[in-house]
Simulated assay, not measured.
Amino acid sequence: MFLRLKNQREEIKIAVFIVISSLAVLLIGPLFNAAAAMGLNAATATSLYYALNFIGWGATVASIVASFVLASIGAYTIWAAVKRMALRSFIKW
């Protein structure tokens, strides 16, 4: 019973934290303009946006390629183990 009440209190605390954080972001977000805070004009801010977007896509592609390579290495390792086991069982036969 006590554990159940404790879990409900924790859930309420987490929900309140999420609501307060969301409200803070929604209320403060429109008031803060990062480009103006850094003293950038529209052209420089646009160039920076596209550069960061390009870097983001590059990081995405790099992670996909890396995960594909890791998956390929894993699949090759499994395939080599299966071949080895099959060869051993064939030799025993």
Rank of each mutant, 00 (worst) to 15 (best):
Y76H: 13
L31A: 09
A36T: 08
A24M: 14
T46V: 08
A34E: 07
T77P: 00
Y50C: 02
T46R: 13
I20P: 00
Q8I: 10
A37L: 14
S22A: 11
K83W: 05
A59I: 15
L27V: 12
Y49N: 02
L31E: 05
I91L: 11
Y50Q: 11
N33H: 13
A24F: 11
M38D: 04
V61S: 05
T77D: 07
N33R: 09
A43D: 14
N53H: 13
A62P: 00
A35S: 15
N7P: 01
A71M: 10
L31H: 05
I91E: 15
I18G: 01
S22K: 00
V16N: 07
L52R: 06
M38N: 04
F17V: 01
F32C: 03
A37Y: 13
A80Q: 15
I14G: 01
L27S: 05
E11R: 07
I64D: 02
I18K: 11
A15D: 04
R9G: 07
L26E: 09
R9H: 09
A66Y: 13
S47H: 09
L52G: 14
L70D: 04
S21C: 06
R88D: 06
V16G: 03
G58Y: 00
G74L: 03
N41T: 02
I12C: 00
S89N: 14
L70V: 09
L40C: 01
S47G: 15
I18C: 05
G29C: 04
V25H: 06
L87Q: 12
S63Y: 05
S22D: 06
L48Y: 04
I64W: 06
I18M: 08
A42S: 10
V82W: 02
N7H: 10
R84L: 11
V69C: 01
A15F: 03
A36R: 12
S47M: 14
A37H: 04
F54S: 12
S47V: 02
I20M: 10
W57I: 12
L70H: 04
F54D: 12
A45Q: 01
L40G: 01
K13N: 13
R9T: 10
S72C: 02
A15S: 12
A15M: 07
M85C: 03
S22F: 08
S47T: 12
A66M: 08
S67F: 11
Y76C: 08
T60F: 14
A35V: 00
G58K: 04
F68E: 06
E10P: 00
A62V: 06
V65S: 00
G56T: 01
P30N: 00
A37Q: 10
M85T: 08
S47F: 12
M38T: 04
W57M: 13
E10T: 07
V61K: 06
A42P: 00
F54M: 15
I91S: 06
A66R: 09
G39F: 02
F90K: 11
I14R: 13
S89F: 11
A34N: 04
A37V: 09
F17Q: 10
L70G: 02
S22V: 05
A75T: 05
S67V: 08
W57H: 11
K13E: 13
T77H: 05
M85I: 15
V19K: 08
